[in-house]
Design a protein around this nucleic acid. Structure first.
Lengths: 250, 250
DNA sequence: CTAGGTTGTTCTCACATTGAGTTGTTCTCG
DNA sequence: CGAGAACAACTCAATGTGAGAACAACCTAG
């Protein structure tokens, strides 16, 4: 902040004209695959490409509120179900030429949701849909949204390591195996069931037992599993680290 | 993005008027204490309070460039010394009432620098200075800058755990003890010298030996220390974890 | 010059955590 | 009913960590 601020208070045209938008990388797990909420653009630029849900920040809402509103508009979600979706700020993207029409700075957010219904044909004409992240190539994506999605996925993978947010992909009660499936889906490779079980139960506040068990065993056999709910920890100590990824280190 | 975008392309007044600024949480270590670059505001609002260096994003620069420019303006730094400063995006702050004059979204950045000269009486009239972070109360800070600084400090502490960025607080060649002093300063408590030494040398790519040693021993005795430079790792595997902080977990 | 204290570096040892595999049991499906 | 699957608990070796000790190199004070 410098003296330009002060001038701007009296001359609203003294600051550069930049639009502020929010975009949302909304993730959920469907049928064992990580899915992403995308919208097919019905008009240029990038007509026919996939884009993140998002839009202009309104004068009377802060950034998180704008992101949650955009998410609500596209998913048709509201009330308690919307409130249970985890939403956090991801990063801001402000390359000069990222939108060919004008200078736009977008504050991207990251959302974790349990399996949600398909977006009802929404408030606007564009088509919204949950797409498996594996089915995407950056060529099909509008603007710099491929980059934003990559950043969001890496953040999601990383957040599972040291926070209990994996539980946000599940409903209120879940089994350890379901929780493990979340990790395996987001990280993209299988985990040792026994070690995962031991680890989850040993981290204080990660999950707490409900005392109940599932009504039936697994679809292909096995005993009834004990049910858990999310605990009160906000950070996992010690963390559940991803298996080493030497490649990405340098 | 929705149809409002499209309209905006033809009607520049169709999007809400929000100013975009960058602010910089610039950290350095002086005399064993973590210091922060701050500017004393010479005019209202918050006249006489401390504020982060920052200002409007210009139409022809992206967010990181704006942050680096603001840092350069306030520190008088340029060229190679400026380029060696680590700069990363921290987060964006967009509460509706964070600036009483107008709606402003600020994209905060975080910078790590080796000990730099005192800011030369700069390009603008406000006083810029390196202040020990321990000497600050949020009451003395303008806008929501107290919150931004807190977030920046927590990010800095966390980054030392899993990246080699501690080396960015030091000059090109340093001893293990100097590196340990960075960790102790940023984390705010002493570390076991032997274990730290073992750990740093065992993490691949963290530091590499220069083959040389210091010319003299420490000021109060001790042998000459071997010199190292930063290695090529971008992430530390395994990480150097802070001693447990149970309190902050829940 | 020397004694005493400080520092850099390397070891040792007890303990915790991790990866990998095994066992026993319960359950579903065909 | 038998085969296979999955949950849950266990074992064991390998690795990593915290705490402390050892020792030599070096400074300053006297």
């Amino acid at each position: 902040m410098n003296e330009q601020d002060f001038l701007a208070a009296y001359d609203p045209s003294a600051y550069p004209s930049i639009a502020v938008t929010v975009d949302v990388v909304a993730l959920t797990i469907r049928e064992g695959e990580l899915h992403l909420l995308l919208i097919r653009r019905g008009q240029p630029p990038y007509e026919g490409h996939w884009a993140l849900p998002g839009g202009f920040v309104r004068p009377d809402e802060d950034l998180a509120a704008g992101a949650r509103r955009e998410l609500a508009e596209e998913t048709g979600l509201g009330g308690e179900r919307l409130r249970r979706v985890h939403l956090e700020q991801l990063a801001s993207y402000g390359a000069v030429d990222r939108d060919p029409r004008m200078r736009v700075v977008s504050v991207a957010h990251l959302a974790f949701a349990p399996d949600l219904p398909d977006p009802a044909a929404g408030t606007d004409a564009d088509e919204a849909i949950w797409l498996p992240v594996t089915a995407l190539t950056s060529r099909q994506l509008a603007f710099d949204h491929g980059r934003i999605i990559d950043d969001g996925l890496e953040r999601a993978r990383s957040k599972l390591e040291y926070t209990p947010l994996a539980t946000r992909f599940l409903d209120g009660e879940f089994t350890i195996s379901e929780l493990r499936a979340v990790y395996e889906t987001v990280w993209g490779h299988p985990l040792h069931a026994g070690n995962f079980h031991r680890k989850v139960l040993s981290v204080p506040g990660f999950v707490e037992s409900t005392g109940a068990s599932t009504e039936r065993g697994g679809a292909r056999g096995g005993p009834r599993a004990k049910l858990y709910r999310a605990g009160d920890a906000r950070l996992l100590h010690p963390a559940l680290l991803r298996p080493a990824r030497e490649e990405t280190v340098r």
